[in-house]
């Protein structure tokens, strides 16, 4: 079973995305054998989490069991926790998505704390964008948050993004067992994916594509070609994420 931990729906301002609709995404997942994808809507990652979350939930209903939802937590929204509370019990919700760089709030900032406390209390995994060296989302900030909320899985979106930061991300993860490396990004190679798995273990790495920023196919190709054992590849492809999501994962039998 292949699960894509990191996806999006919608368009984005600074570049042209030919296919931003869930139907294209599902057809492409079918084409390459991906069972389900967790998405946040790009409106939510950007300027309107309320609308973005609604659209993501609608897509999840339309493609039940194929599209999971990471509800975007907007640190600028005074009602964010109440809104998350309203939405969190929808079937298909996988967890909470944070994007400190677009919202320009440091992950350790007190404005994130109510959202993190909510996720911890409700047993929701958190997927946060990370970018090595970013004042908003450096992986070390996720480690600080993890110390405050022991037991809450935190998926490090992009694993810090840049190849030369991956060894540091792995070192940070070594001391923080709830941190999970998510592997989408424009700079990762199969060589570095192999190294990352060797450093942290396949049970702490999850496949993600960043669709529809990226086509879901290249990240899968990178995973399939990485020099991993079959059990390692299975864990990264879906096993690790399925364990983290538990009962929240309801994967429908593939259409293809």
């Amino acid at each position: 079973m292949i699960l894509d931990a990191h996806g999006h729906l919608g368009t984005w301002g600074d570049f042209f995305i030919p296919h931003a609709d869930p139907a294209w995404l599902i057809a492409t997942l079918d084409r390459v054998g991906i069972s389900a994808i967790g998405v946040s809507h790009l409106l939510g990652v950007g300027h309107d989490a309320r609308t973005g979350n609604r659209l993501a939930l609608e897509a999840s209903e339309q493609f039940a069991g194929r599209i999971g939802v990471w509800l975007v937590g907007d640190p600028h929204d005074r009602e964010a926790v109440a809104r998350l509370s309203d939405d969190v019990d929808h079937t298909g919700v996988w967890g909470v998505k944070l994007h400190p760089d677009t919202h320009q709030v440091q992950l350790t900032d007190e404005r994130y704390e109510p959202l993190l406390a909510f996720a911890a209390e409700r047993g929701l995994p958190v997927l946060t964008h990370t970018h090595t060296g970013s004042v908003w989302s450096d992986p070390a900030l996720a480690a600080e948050v993890s110390k405050r909320h022991a037991g809450m899985p935190i998926l490090l979106g992009h694993s810090g993004l840049v190849e030369n930061g991956l060894t540091r991300t792995a070192a940070i993860m070594a001391d923080h067992p709830d941190l999970i490396a998510e592997i989408c990004g424009s700079q990762l190679t199969r060589r570095w994916l192999t190294r990352l798995v060797r450093l942290v273990g396949a049970d702490r790495v999850v496949y993600g594509s960043d669709a529809c920023f990226f086509d879901p196919r290249p990240a899968l190709g990178r995973l399939l070609a990485a020099e991993l054992t079959d059990p390692e590849r299975d864990s990264v492809a879906g096993g690790t994420l399925a364990r983290l999501l538990g009962h929240r994962l309801t994967v429908k039998e593939m259409h293809a």
Binding site: T28, R31, V32, L188, T189, R190, R191, D215, R217, P218, A219, L220, G221, R222, L224, A225, A226
Partner: peptide, 18 residues
């Protein structure tokens, strides 16, 4: 652009183009 850039992902994409 390999090995400076990823070779495996684009190759898989090429093979699965619609």
């Amino acid at each position: 652009g390999g090995p400076l850039l990823d070779e495996a992902g684009p190759t898989f994409l090429l093979r699965s183009l619609d």
